[in-house]
Structure formats: C-alpha cells, structure tokens
C-alpha cells in the first residue's frame, strides 16, 4: 500500500510539467523515504532526476518500494484539473494496476478523484554520480529562462562560459551573434535576485539550446536555478524544491565533430 498526501498539490503539477516534454513514459519510484523519477529523455541526450522527500508530504506511507509506470502526458491531463491551492492525495495498491488521485479544495467544498491506469515500463535506471564541480552558479530561475528563450532566436548552440566577472551565454547563428553576461552579485537586496558564482577555475562548454529550453519548464518550481559545470562532463541544472527535493537535468556538452 502506498499513500501520500501533499498539501501543496501544485508542486506535483509543476514537476510533471517540467518533465513531460522530455519524458513520455516513466516510473514513479516510491520508497519509504521519497518519491523519485530517473529517466533519460526519448532521444537519449539528457537525463532527468526528480526527488520529492517524504518530508514534503503531510502524510506519507509506503509499505514496500513500488514503481508506478505513468504516461506523463496523461498525468498532465489530469493535473490540468487541479486548482492551485488544492491538496493532492496519491493512493496505489501493491501490485495494483491503477493510481488513484484525490484533489481536495482548500475549503473542503470540492473533492475530485481520478484513477490513472498504470503502465508496465521496463527500463534500466540510470544516474550520474555526484562529483565536485569546478564552477557552480546560482542565479534567478526567471533570468535563466529569459536568457535561454532570447538566445534561441539566434541559433541552436549556446556557449556557457563561467569566468571571474560573471557568466557569459553566447550564441552564433546565421543571422548574427549574441552575448549575455550575467555578473556575480551576491549582495543583492533580495535573496531571489542574487547571482552567486563559486569558481575554482573558468569553464566553457557548448550546449543545445533546444534542451536548455526544455529544462526551463521547471522555472516555476523554484526562484533559483543552480548550474554546475566542469570541463568535458555533463552540466547539472538543478531546481531545488524548498528543502524537500529537486528537479535536476543533466546534459552532455556538445563536442566539435572531427
């Protein structure tokens, strides 16, 4: 038996929205400690890792680990019907074939329940081992979203170079070039406007803008985004969900074809 009640139901809605463009079908892995998702996107270019710890829920019970196979598009259809202040309750039998979702309004005036048929999805779970990164950038997530969206007009590959004075995002395309420099600014008044760069040495990597754009779908989950880079290893773009979890995206840098 698995049962979990999430007062802030919209978080789950945002999680599904943040992965549905990348992942069509995936398992919701429920364990005693957390709900997590690990999946490569369908083109096998990036990897998504989601964690929502038991602490995020006001009620959490998981008798045995369970993998709930869901189709993200269908899940998203159901969450479309969720009001932003609704509470969500998940229920699934061990070895059952459906997931029950309960949406309760704040004033206890409406209760909606849904049953989503589960899928049996067979895939190997993958993870990227944690390593120390040469650069870590913390910046407002809205800012990152805007930069990615703006640069897409110019081309499809974005160079992210992290140096002393800040982070430079640059694009070269058929119509011209573009550079956006974000300066470190640890002393900003509001915490959400802060740009903090923690750097051991400068790093410069190229990425497909198409994917960076997919990642910014998680913007609403968090005020900040953490970008961690080291030469020749995948970048991690992390959207923390308060203290309870995160949505992380891994993307391998583009290498020049010989």
């Amino acid at each position: 038996m698995f049962e979990a009640r999430l007062t802030n139901g919209v978080t789950m809605k945002q999680i599904i929205e943040s992965i549905k463009d990348l992942v069509k079908d995936c398992n919701l892995d429920c364990s005693e400690e957390e709900i997590s998702i690990q999946s490569m996107d369908s083109a096998h270019v990036s990897l998504v890792a989601v964690r929502l710890g038991a602490g995020a829920f006001d009620h959490y019970r998981c008798d045995r680990p369970n993998a709930l196979g869901i189709n993200t598009a269908n899940m998203s259809k159901i969450f479309k019907m969720l009001n932003n202040d609704d509470t969500v309750t998940f229920k699934a039998e061990d070895e059952g074939d459906a997931l029950t979702l309960l949406f309760e309004g704040q004033k206890n005036d409406t209760i909606a329940d849904f049953e989503l048929k589960l899928m049996d999805i067979d895939y190997e779970q993958l993870g990227i081992p944690d390593t120390p990164y040469k650069c870590s950038i913390k910046m407002p997530s809205r800012e990152f979203e805007r930069i990615v969206r703006d640069l897409q007009v110019l081309g499809d590959t974005c160079t992210i170079s992290c140096g002393k004075e800040g982070v430079r995002f640059s694009v070269t395309g058929n119509i011209g070039t573009g550079n956006i420099l974000t300066r470190a600014n640890a002393s900003a008044e509001k915490e959400k406007d802060q740009v903090i760069i923690d750097m051991e040495e400068p790093v410069e990597l190229n990425f497909a803008l198409r994917y960076l754009n997919f990642f910014t779908k998680a913007t609403s989950l968090s005020d900040h985004v953490m970008i961690s880079m080291s030469p020749e290893v995948p970048v991690v773009i992390e959207y923390p969900i308060q203290d309870y979890g995160y949505v992380k995206y891994y993307l391998a840098p583009k290498i020049e074809e010989e």
Binding site: H44, S46, L126, G127, I128, P129, V233, P234, Y250, A252
Partner: peptide
Amino acid sequence: GSLMMFAVKK
C-alpha cells in the same frame, strides 16, 4: 560524447 559515457546503471 553521449550522456551514457557518464551515466551509471542503478
């Protein structure tokens, strides 16, 4: 160049 170079099977 693929992400699989870095991934570990769980």
